[in-house]
Amino acid sequence: MNHSIKRTMAIFQKDYKDFTKNLYVSSMVFLPLFMAAIYGRMGVQSIEMVFMIFNLTLTVIAAFTQSALIAEEKEKNTLRGLMLSPAGTGEILIGKSLVSFLISAIILLLSAVLIEYRPGNTLLIAAGLFVSILFYLGVGTLLGLITRSVMEASVAILPVLLFFSFSSFAMQLSAEYPILKAAEYLPNTQLVNLGHAVQSGAGFADGLPALLIITGWTIGISALVVVVYHKKMVDN
């Protein structure tokens, strides 16, 4: 096995073991599952509701877990050890994202099952969710890099959580306030749009613009993460 992959896997395994023993972070996974179960039992099937749960899962699990993992490395002063190790920037960032990625994917799947959401085009929705997870991991990493401790990260995540969970509702008000039209291009709104498109039986070509916009956001945030990471590395 390639050395680079070996190191990435080492960081992944370490984080996985660390995560399972970290109740503060790992207990968060039950929040979206709980909500999905309740809404599922209530028989709520509107696309907005389903995707609100998805967006909540993405912020709470992908973004929060990731920011907590990164912030903890900084708080406990273990990040420098990683940086001085032969592992490069990419290996550290990917290794540290793998755990949050896997957990997010599993929780999204479970939420979808619990809320009894059966999309017409599973592949398209899966692709949309995949790119979205990457975007939220980027947000989480960024927050983790900017904040200094897990405490700070968990406070900083709150506005992010509110913003990305509920800003898709802003669209409904956009007729009254044209400025809110801008919200249409947010990744979370695009994900909801993708859901609507799939629900109305759209094919891959119709979902493509939404996917591309989310991918654009993901690439943007990844670039930002790399820049901030290098800046912080020089600072320390």
Partner: peptide
């Protein structure tokens, strides 16, 4: 600093893989 939640053995194995 060390990863406080890992056991010694786990920590050593992590380093072992990290430093190949």
């Amino acid at each position: 600093a060390l990863y406080e939640r890992l056991t010694l053995k786990e920590h050593i194995l992590f380093w072992k893989k990290l430093f190949i």
